[in-house]
Design a protein around this nucleic acid. Structure first.
Lengths: 147, 147
DNA sequence: AAAGATTGACCCGTCAATCTTG
DNA sequence: CAAGATTGACGGGTCAATCTTT
């Protein structure tokens, strides 16, 4: 008993519950303390880590855990707030870039410690560093097998 | 380097990505092979495990990873399909029960192996049984600390 | 025709407001 | 008034269709 399938279902259930619990909590913290929705933060993060602080919309869509459609709408919002700018690719008229503005970079810099601290407090605090690394490793292997 | 905060963020990122990848996949499999959306399955599962195959709406809402509002709408749908029935509590007029019908129990029985197999294949296959148990344990501890 | 990107219609889910019963 | 439950309005997200450029 406590078969393999049962164990797999339990582990998967834990993933679902952790996700369901923490996403709203983290969103709320970042929203309250940094004034950004979590989805904005994700986009800013990817741009901040990109060379020249800019990415094609498709590349952005691939990195963020969101559809291209959603990314398109998010970039519009961020652009209207002055956190990014959208510019056409001079070499390929179909393609456009999203580029972080100074204001966007500043907003990200301000939000980043809030987010990482929230993760550490709400997600990490019941596990040792080694255990966290283990979680990342095990779930990472699930992902590798997948793509 | 590779500080604790970094490790926590990586682990959390893995949770997000696994969730984002697998939920649509599993939903699709169950939908295609069992003809049920995943949300229906969750409700049927809880009712199937409940004594007498019935639960108060509130109890159902607490067990499923969904709001009471959503549960209310789901039970309406399931009821229109004949998979559950809603009945008033004779002892407390405010409260109502959702009870699995025979058709609902049959639908669940048919869907359960499909779902557990899909989990095993898509989520569990890259990990040993011990590792799966570890994931459940570690994430379970995150949840305990939380509530 | 194919690739990049955007738009419109739509689904899923929650929040706040409401209704009913205790 | 508090508790159980439902309804209406809304936000976040995706899919299919569309437009433009290659």
């Amino acid at each position: 008993m406590t078969s393999r399938k049962r164990t797999a279902a339990d582990a998967w259930g834990a993933v679902l519950r952790v996700h369901a619990q923490l996403v709203p909590e983290l969103d709320q913290v970042v929203q309250a303390e940094a004034g950004l929705p979590l989805s904005w933060y994700d986009v800013l993060l990817e741009l901040a880590h990109a060379p020249e602080h800019r990415l094609r919309m498709t590349e952005l869509g691939d990195r963020v855990v969101l559809s291209r459609t959603r990314v398109s709408r998010l970039v519009d919002e961020l652009s209207s707030k002055g956190l990014v700018v959208k510019e056409a690719d001079p070499l390929d008229g179909r393609s456009s870039f999203a580029t972080l503005t100074d204001a966007g970079a500043a907003a990200f810099k301000a939000a980043a410690p809030i987010y990482t601290r929230a993760i550490e407090e709400r997600f990490g605090s019941s596990l040792t560093t080694a255990e966290l690394a283990q979680v990342a490793d095990l779930l990472g292997r699930v992902l590798e097998a997948r793509q």
